[in-house]
């Protein structure tokens, strides 16, 4: 598991905001992005939340119950 903020950044980095361009004859720009995914999470003693995408079934069968994360991003020009 990783810190929640790192998970948010990792997920946002996976999605390109632009595709194509003049050379391709068309350019696509994403205005907004919605991500919903199941997560495994753990509250640390400090109160910080660590989370990750589900890591699949454990051989031991002791799987963590899944929560859910929904992120809404909007595109911004610097």
């Amino acid at each position: 598991m990783i810190a929640l903020e790192d998970l948010v950044l990792a997920l946002s980095a996976q999605i390109p905001q632009q595709a194509g361009g003049p050379a391709h004859g068309v350019e696509l720009v994403l205005d907004s992005l919605e991500i919903t995914l199941p997560i495994e999470s753990r509250l640390m003693a400090s109160g910080r939340l660590c989370a990750s995408a589900p890591r699949g079934s454990w051989r031991s069968g002791f799987d963590l119950p899944h929560g859910e994360l929904h992120l809404g991003f909007t595109s911004r020009k610097p």
Binding site: H70, G72, S75, R76
Partner: peptide
């Protein structure tokens, strides 16, 4: 372009 976080929902 960059992303800005607009909404955040979590079920724990």
């Amino acid at each position: 372009l960059t992303w800005a976080l607009r909404d955040f929902k979590i079920a724990l």
